[in-house]
Design a binder for these strands. Structure first.
Lengths: 189, 189
DNA sequence: TAGGCTTGCCTAGAGGTCCTAGGCAAATCA
DNA sequence: TGATTTGCCTAGGACCTCTAGGCAAGCCTA
């Protein structure tokens, strides 16, 4: 009997693709085992349990998202950087719905400390560099920006904006205008 | 054998309490049946399936959230209304984490048409009345406001803001200042 | 290249959740 | 009081999670 050549990384990548296809909540150990043509019990030598698999998937997605965001803002500043950053963020969420859902998982502090979340925060800070904000305004603005982007793509995906005819794309562009305007003139504390 | 006196509504309320206690994802038909001391098969005369139960829970939560938001903005306008609305929204999310998670469920259009989502949008519009925005700016602003509030409370609950010492409460107040400032001077299209 | 060791995938099986089919008895109604 | 409806039951199948223990493939060493 030939071996399937599994590893935690290969399982995580396959789980990510599966998540994009069938939804994050449908990523199961059994489905993953079927994909590789092995028995589900075989996966437990590579992953601790189903939750472990989901955490690995979340870390992978956060890392990919940071990569794309970093590429998007390279060589840009100010509103250019903001639009590129937000666009990369939203595009990732649309093209990889399962992976994006995974990024919303509540990770325990130990896992967060492994990197990708921090990197995300650093990138957001880089976007704001052109707006000349100083602490603590910068942190407040980072949180605000992150909240608005995350909230927008989440609500958009949940269909919360479909009840009104106004185009979602047009609202998105105006949201970016609004963010730029707000960051350019962040209200004094 | 005495009957337990179940009904779809009683099940939904119990499911909501259960969600706040153990998390939305752990609301199962079995757990609910255990809570009432009956067999899980008995619940299927009241609910169609597990998904139906979760949808009912989402509708309940959206309705409660709308009630609290409506009470908060009654008799207020402008920034007062904004702060009260946002506060009610955030408080509900903190006090009822399971219910709030339920509100994030993707509801199919038929369910959305039953009311609570629309009501939520109407309330957001009411908050903006004092800012004198006209279509399509108003819709864009409704979406922006909703995104920022939802994003903030979601990220806050996921622990995304814990990595930095700046107080989450202080950032929240500044976010409200920023929203007020932005809505007061919504950038021209 | 032969023996031993590690490792990868296996079978077996227990326990949990979801859900359907069909039955009996309690509550309600004629 | 008898007939009908309703509520909860048992039985059981399908799927998912995870553990224990086994066998053989592939690697290391001599």
């Amino acid at each position: 009997m030939a071996r399937a050549g599994l590893s935690a990384d290969r399982l995580t990548e396959a789980a990510a693709d599966l998540a994009d296809e069938v939804g994050f909540e449908n990523v199961t150990v059994s489905a993953l085992a079927r994909h590789f043509g092995v028995k589900d019990a075989s996966l437990y030598s590579h992953i601790r349990n189903a939750q472990d698999l989901r955490v690995r998937l979340a870390v992978l997605a956060l890392s990919e998202l940071a990569d794309q965001a970093a590429a998007a803002i390279a060589g840009r500043s100010g509103k250019d950087a903001l639009v590129a950053f937000a666009g990369a963020y939203r595009r990732y969420a649309h093209e990889h719905p399962g992976r994006y859902t995974a990024t919303q998982m509540a990770l325990d502090p130990d896992t967060v400390a492994t990197g990708p979340s921090e990197r995300h925060a650093d990138l957001t800070r880089a976007v704001l560099r052109g707006y000349r904000l100083w602490e603590p305004d910068e942190t407040d603005a980072v949180r605000f920006l992150h909240s608005t982007l995350h909230g927008y793509v989440t609500l958009e995906r949940a269909g919360a904006f479909h009840s009104h005819p106004r185009g979602v794309e047009a609202s998105w562009l105006r949201a970016l205008d609004a963010l730029d305007s707000l960051l350019s003139d962040w209200p004094a504390g």
